[in-house]
Amino acid sequence: METDKNAVAERVSRLMETVPKDRGQLLPALWRVFEEYQRIGPEMIEAVSNAMNIPYAEVFGVASFYALFDNAAGHRPIYVCTDVLCALKGSEDLLAVGEDAAQGAAVALKESPCLGHCDGAPAMFDGHRTVRNATRASLMAMIRGESHA
């Protein structure tokens, strides 16, 4: 565990090398960590805290504020919008189907508030890419990690 912690600290401090050490860069710094690990656990918060010289509690407070950083298992996230317009187009059923399929796959299927694609409802997002007019087939492809769902 100690080795893991040291490895994380080392990797995070390398990630922070080109980040200016000021408080205003905390959010970009957290993004770098998240892009690397797909999660922001206590050991990463401690490493960021040390690298940026910002108290642990402050880093934790910021990291835990944002929904996109809430991904404890570090699995690839898939967000299905279940807000009004997407729900009217069947996204809640889509989510239910996806939940069965996602079991065993290393993905974290999540409900999302409005993704800003109401003209292409239902919408889903894998952290990098948005799929509009989502279908069972495109959701399954996203769960399987196919790049052109």
Binding site: L85, P113, C114, G116, C118
Partner: peptide
């Protein structure tokens, strides 16, 4: 930071 429900014009 366009996140208002039903809003996508800035995108």
């Amino acid at each position: 930071d366009e996140s208002e429900l039903g809003t996508f014009k800035d995108r």
